[in-house]
Structure formats: C-alpha cells, structure tokens
Design a protein around this nucleic acid. Structure first.
Length: 224
DNA sequence: GGGTGATCATGG
DNA sequence: CCATGATCACCC
C-alpha cells in the first residue's frame, strides 16, 4: 500500500478532499491497493481509515486533531439518500476523574471540534460497500450558537461527572452532545468518581455528537 | 487499559 | 423505526 504524503496546507487538503468527491469506496481502495471487506461488521472503522490514508492523515491514536499542523480534525460521516447522518459522531473520550476545575476553553471536545473536515459517505447498508460513494467535503467550525450548545452540554455533563453521577448519566442527557460507552466491551473498566466521593470503576465513556446536530451542519453546507 | 477509527443490533 | 448501549479492529 502507498503512504500518502501529508498535505502541507489547508488548500492542499481541501483540494484532495474535493478530488475524492463522487468516487466510490471501491475506486479509492483500488487506488491504494487495499482489499474491500464484504461488510463493516468486523471492520467498523475501515472507511474512516481509508479516507485518512487517501488524504494523508497521520496514522496513530493520539488524542489530537488528525492534521495538527493545519488545525483540522477529519470525520467521515455515513449519510442516507437524503444526506442525513445515519450515526452519531464520536468526538473523544470523556474524563471521569479529576474533573473539578476543568474549563470548556481547555477541553478536548472544544479543541477537536474547532475545525472539522466532514467527509460524507453513502452509508445505507443495502449499498455494497465498494459501491458507496464519497460526497462533497465540508470544512466546518462551530458558530457562536453551535459552540454555546456544545459548551452548555459539556459543562452540564462534566458537572454530573464531578458529582459522582456517571452511573445515572445516559445518552439522553445533552441537546447536541451526549455521553455514551466507548470501550472494547462492557467488561472494560476505568476509574470514576462515585456519589459518596470515593473512587469506583465504570465503563469508559466518550462524547458523541447527536444526529440532528451533524445533520444541520450538512444541511447548512449544502443548502437544503 | 487507554486511545484511534467507527458501526452494530436490539430494546423501547 | 431508530437511538442507545454494546461492540469490533488495531496501535501503543
């Protein structure tokens, strides 16, 4: 397989992203010499990694933006025939310990979402994986309203974590940002604050963007 | 275990 | 029908 050179400028990154638009997953994979799995059941992050490679994102699992030197986070997002996201969007892991004194301005959520390059990809499961097409990219930064919504949810969730309410926090909390399990399986444990202030163990959690929020981002970008 | 990339699959 | 809670693969 080829290792794409990392884009040096935002313009170059966008140019490459636009060049992918309209191509199929099969075409991209062929160009990179990668076999296409029959489905994503055992390869859930495969499309994301394919797009990363095509655009020359740094591989690795650092809790950082994909294009740190450009200040851009890359997100592929599965959409239906109407352009509506089919899934929530993972943002980052949530801190469950030492959260007192944390501020939105320094949060990983804010940092990751400061500038996102959205790559829509057809996601209907009745379309064979190789036939699914890549859509037009969207470079997005939260406007004032969007950031306020994110901030409110983040602050509310962090407050509950600090109060030892992790076990009562569900994905229903938050208008646009939700907290959900994020782990290999339900057996994975990490430290958290308990209601009585002691340290306990719980399933690791991540922050996710709810579908109506990302749907609105795409809708505004494409004007429908 | 903690992080990345996410989608799966079923209960409400 | 679809969002929530669970899970998959890989890296370190």
């Amino acid at each position: 397989m080829t290792t794409a050179r990392s884009p040096q400028t935002l313009e170059e990154l966008l140019c490459r992203a636009y060049q992918m638009a309209g191509l199929s997953i099969g075409q991209l994979a062929a160009g990179l010499g990668l076999p296409v799995p029959n489905n994503l059941k055992r390869d859930k992050g495969w499309i994301g990694q394919l797009i990363e490679q095509e655009l020359g994102a740094q591989a690795g699992s650092r809790p950082e933006q994909d294009f740190l030197h450009l200040g851009v986070e890359l997100k592929t997002i599965p959409i239906d025939a109407q352009g509506k996201p089919l899934e929530t969007t993972y943002v980052c892991v949530a801190p469950l310990m030492n959260v007192s004194g944390m501020r939105w301005e320094h949060s990983l959520v804010k940092h990751k979402l400061e500038r996102v390059l959205w790559i829509p990809v057809e996601g209907d499961r009745n379309i064979p994986l190789a036939a699914r097409r890549v859509g037009t990219p969207v470079l997005w930064s939260p406007n004032q309203d969007e950031e306020q919504l994110l901030r409110q949810d983040w602050e509310e969730i962090l407050e509950l974590i600090a109060l030892g309410q992790v076990s009562t926090l569900t994905a229903r909390h938050g208008e646009v940002l939700q907290l959900r399990p994020k782990a290999a399986n339900a057996a994975a444990k990490t430290e958290c604050i308990m209601e009585d202030g002691t340290v306990g163990l719980t399933n690791p959690r991540g922050f996710y963007l709810k579908i109506p929020f990302t749907s609105a981002i795409l809708r505004q970008a494409f004007g429908y």
